[in-house]
Amino acid sequence: MDLARLHHMANQIARNLAAQGEEAAIAATAQHIRDFWEPRMKAAILGSDRSPLDPIARAALERLDDA
């Protein structure tokens, strides 16, 4: 999968949910990826270098790592 696109998508989700407050935004971003991303997309981003990600997106992926 196109990692740049996946990173952009994750950041976009996080930025649009950020107004809910950090904790809620992290949880909502993780849930959004869980609900709407196909497994190979999830696998690709979880296995990627996460440095291009915003803090909320990065924290959301950590939740998914733990799941």
Partner: peptide, 13 residues
């Protein structure tokens, strides 16, 4: 049980 690909994701894949 997992969601599938959307059209743009299909093209990427």
């Amino acid at each position: 049980p997992e969601p599938g690909l959307r059209i743009p994701n299909m093209l990427d894949a």
